[in-house]
Amino acid sequence: MHRFANPTRFLRIAAVVQPWVAWITVTLFAVGLYMAFFTAPADYQQGESVRIMYVHVPAAWMGMFCYAAMAVASAVALVWKHPLADVAAKASAPTGAAFTFLALATGSLWGKPMWGTWWVWDARLTSMLILFFLYIGYMALQGAFDDRARGAKASAVLALVGAVNLPIIKFSVDWWNTLHQPSSVIKMGGPSIHPSMLWPLLILAVAFKGYYVWVLLVRIRQELTANKVRILQLRQVHGG
């Protein structure tokens, strides 16, 4: 891991890897979306609107995956002071927040035809909403300091506190939900899901992860370049 701590070496590798990741992502999206829209059957109960699932479920997975990635990167940054981990954690947050929002929005659109309402206080929806708030808090804390290094450190601590708390929040929201409205929620497709629906779902889930890696590489490179520009500007100001 520390082999990649050197930003120059990282940039060299990233420049090679990035086009590959991009092509794999685009191919997987094309295949997955084709399968989702054309080969997967419509649900016998939910009709065509079941196809929202192929965006909604991978987006929800992405929202949680990004938070986990952010927490791991923050731990690495705090413990080993790894210079790229800070940047990686910072770069993961907006992607995670965007996909959490996407999951909430598609869930709401799916809820209207299925449950007859835009929003229900379903345990999963509620925990995603709280996850979204945690992302917002993380990004707000990061931007709240004049000294960028302090913002990075403070938000790393927050990401870890949030990671410890998330399972507790998830558990208590599940508890709260079963207490308030038992079994009014339609569960997705029952316990088993037919392979013709499972495959596009899995392919799209991998495509989403590919997109994450792609955007992560772009954002890390952009951040490193921005740092260079800032240093050059400072040198110009001080060097006269």
């Binding site: 709280i130 708030f133 945690l134 917002i136 808090g137 707000a140 804390l141 709240a144 300091f145 004049d146 302090r150 403070a154 601590v157 927050l158 506190v161 949030g162 708390n165 507790i168 929040i169 558990f171 208590s172 929201v173």
Partner: peptide
């Protein structure tokens, strides 16, 4: 402790702490 020395600490504090209070 996290918001010490930040801009608009008060509003930020509510954003950080209230989700963690839910359980």
């Amino acid at each position: 402790a996290l918001v010490l020395g930040s801009r608009r600490g008060g509003v930020l504090l509510s954003l950080l702490v209230l989700p963690l209070y839910i359980p």
